[in-house]
Amino acid sequence: MKTLLLLITVFLSLGTIFTATNLAFSQEMQPGQENIQFIPVVPTEKSSVTALIQVFSLDIYCTNYTIDHVLSGHVLVMNVKTKTIPGGKCPMPAESYVSLRQGIGQLGFGTYDVKLFINGTQKAAIKLYVSQGQIEITATGKYTDKQGDAHIVGDVKNTASYPVRLVQIDVSFVNGDEVVADKKLYTTMAVLMPQTSSGFDLLVDSKNLSNMKYFVRADSFLKDTSKIQQGLKLSTESSWQSSSGIGMVSGIVLNAANINASQVKVVCVLYDQTGTGVLDSIFEYTNPSSIASGQSSDFVLSSHYPITSQFTPNCNAESPQLAILSTETVPEFAMPVIVFVASLTFMILIKKSLQIVNNP
């Protein structure tokens, strides 16, 4: 444990803070217990932090509760209090627990002791690490591919006011109290514009490490001074699961710049239905991969393995010539609504035309 704590102190002092889905850094929601976790899992001083609280209570299920937080130095206390439901009992919830959200805002650099109280009784305690660096670890996860190999995946965000490139991620594997292995990789996106993110996918090449606990940190990056032009507009239009369970994401990338773009790459991180865990990190080139000025190109991405639950994609795009200008997610009901409105308008016009014919 002393070795691990020493590493924590070093990472904090370097400003390249780490996160984990395990050990003292564990933020996984475990069924059957009241718990608390944070998004992002490792914020920077510029990140907006949100607490996610898992509570078992019929009163909570009926939204008859209050929630607040008190910050005193580096101690953060979350208080949840239930109220008596007037006029009857709360119906049985569909799930055995409910998840609550509480905005915390920005926090200063350092380690925070977080305590969760439900009706005055402490139910959970964890630590939250806030980095002095510019790269936040938004969320992480793990999956097993078709060959039976484990992958560590995640989403990282540039919270700086300037572009960064060559963001290197360090994944450390822990056995008991000792760090037994370190693996390094770069984010899938080469350049991250301010307030944009990229996924990463680490193949765990050793079976001995695949079941070990791990933590992730942003190891290094370079400030991009090339003044890359922004011009790619990405629209995520649809996400679904194929008959075999493979997660699919489709959309369009528009080149809004005055120059052509080649090798346009789309990177998507697939989040679980809670929005707190990463299921997969995928990328593909648009079809066609080159987009002339003022033109657009489609993309379709698929997950590395069957996904058994609902997911939400978070996508970004880049090319050697252009960076992302904007991203949006088009509601999947938008097109049917437009068609319906157009059909309704057409029917009204036909009806009015018939009235004119019958009443000259």
Rank of each mutant, 00 (worst) to 15 (best):
K146M: 00
Y186F: 15
D155Q: 10
L192A: 05
A190T: 14
D177F: 14
G141D: 01
R165F: 11
A160V: 04
V156Y: 04
T138P: 00
V171L: 09
M189E: 11
D170I: 11
D170H: 11
L166H: 07
D149F: 11
A139E: 07
A190L: 13
D201R: 09
A190M: 12
S197G: 11
T140R: 00
K142E: 02
T138L: 08
G176N: 14
T144A: 00
V204S: 04
L185C: 10
Y143H: 01
Q147V: 01
P194H: 13
E178I: 11
V174Q: 08
V171E: 08
I137W: 02
G154F: 06
D205V: 06
R165D: 13
V174Y: 05
K146S: 06
H151V: 03
S161G: 09
L185I: 13
D170R: 15
D155V: 01
L192S: 04
V171D: 05
A190C: 06
Y162N: 09
L202D: 04
Q168A: 12
T138I: 10
A181D: 15
G176W: 12
L203I: 09
D205F: 03
L202M: 11
L202T: 04
D205E: 12
P194W: 14
V179K: 09
G148P: 04
K157W: 05
A139L: 07
S197A: 15
I169L: 12
K142S: 03
L192F: 09
V179E: 08
V180P: 03
M193E: 15
L202H: 03
V191Y: 15
L185F: 13
R165M: 14
L185E: 10
F200A: 00
R165L: 14
S161M: 09
V153K: 01
A160R: 03
P194M: 14
D145E: 02
D205R: 10
V156N: 03
D205C: 02
K184M: 15
V180C: 06
T159G: 00
R165S: 12
D182M: 08
K146N: 03
F200Q: 01
S198G: 07
A150T: 08
L202Y: 07
H151G: 01
P194A: 13
A139D: 09
S172Q: 14
V171Q: 07
N175R: 15
V164Y: 05
